[in-house]
């Protein structure tokens, strides 16, 4: 179809585009380029960056270990209440992260349902620790991985698993040697998305893990804090997060951005 683009669509479309792009452009314009290198080398920034990368990666690992099997269960095993379980698993996707943090505190906090027991039995306390950051990030990011992997599993031809079965493969072997390699692109994409979500996590982290530099203060927390005291530092930190986002988008472009 060709012809003139109607104004009624064109004007809001351009306005929408500007709305999404302008703030990012503003970030670039206002960035203190001259002092950027020095600011980036500040120990507080480096510390936050290190902590962010560490916790996001650890959270992604946790999500992979638990999320891939969970996705498999949802995609391959017919059990009663599967739809309900799927709905529950994806709740963190729409739940305000702060609420997630409060919920984590209630369950895993020192006096929480599970936290109490963890403390007594193993002497483990999660809130306000680096491990707590990982827990908060994993809680928020896992649904992204589960949904992505489940989609890949549903799209994968199940008959390859049947072929594996006729060759003597148990379900576990078939999963490990056939299904997982086949859905690897979906797992990688889900993992990257999950990592990006974990990296940007704010609400649940600050609620559950607090804001202690070097221990629980990740990049987004540092940005928020810096904004009140040292706006230029906030811009620098934001730039770093923006750069990471752009890189991730570039990595995933074949998967999502160029969808038909």
């Amino acid at each position: 179809m060709s012809g003139r683009v109607p104004w009624a669509l064109m004007v809001p479309a351009l306005a929408g585009m500007a709305f999404l792009v302008l703030p990012l452009a503003g970030l670039l314009v206002r960035a203190p380029w001259s002092t950027l290198a020095r600011r980036l080398a500040e120990p507080q920034v480096l510390e936050a960056l290190r902590l962010s990368l560490l916790t996001a990666t650890a959270a992604t690992a946790v999500c992979l270990i638990f999320g891939v099997p969970l996705a498999w269960l949802l995609a391959r095993v017919d059990f009663p209440g599967r739809r309900l379980v799927r709905a529950l698993v994806t709740v963190p996707l729409v739940l305000p992260p702060v609420v997630g943090g409060v919920a984590l505190l209630l369950v895993l906090g020192r006096r929480g349902l599970v936290g109490q027991w963890l403390d007594h039995a193993f002497g483990i306390t999660l809130p306000f620790t680096t491990a707590g950051v990982v827990v908060a990030e994993a809680f928020v990011a896992m649904p992204f991985l589960v949904i992505s992997v489940e989609g890949a599993l549903r799209a994968a031809d199940r008959r390859f698993e049947e072929a594996a079965a006729t060759l003597g493969a148990s379900r576990w072997t078939a999963f490990r040697r056939v299904t997982l390699p086949l859905i690897a692109p979906g797992v990688v994409a889900g993992g990257v998305l999950c990592w990006a979500r974990a990296l940007g996590e704010f609400g649940a982290t600050i609620t559950f893990a607090g804001n202690f530099p070097g221990r629980t203060q990740t990049m987004p927390l540092a940005v928020y804090l810096a904004l009140e005291t040292e706006p230029e530092a906030a811009i620098v930190l934001s730039l770093v997060l923006l750069a990471v986002s752009v890189i991730i988008l570039a990595c995933l472009r074949d998967k999502w951005v160029n969808s038909p």
């Binding site: 008959r159 390859f160 049947e162 072929a163 594996a164 079965a165 006729t166 060759l167 003597g168 493969a169």
Partner: peptide
């Protein structure tokens, strides 16, 4: 299926 002494050639080979 995995314990049966059966070999199968699928239509599109798989």
């Amino acid at each position: 299926a995995e314990r049966r002494p059966v070999g199968m050639v699928f239509q599109d080979y798989l």
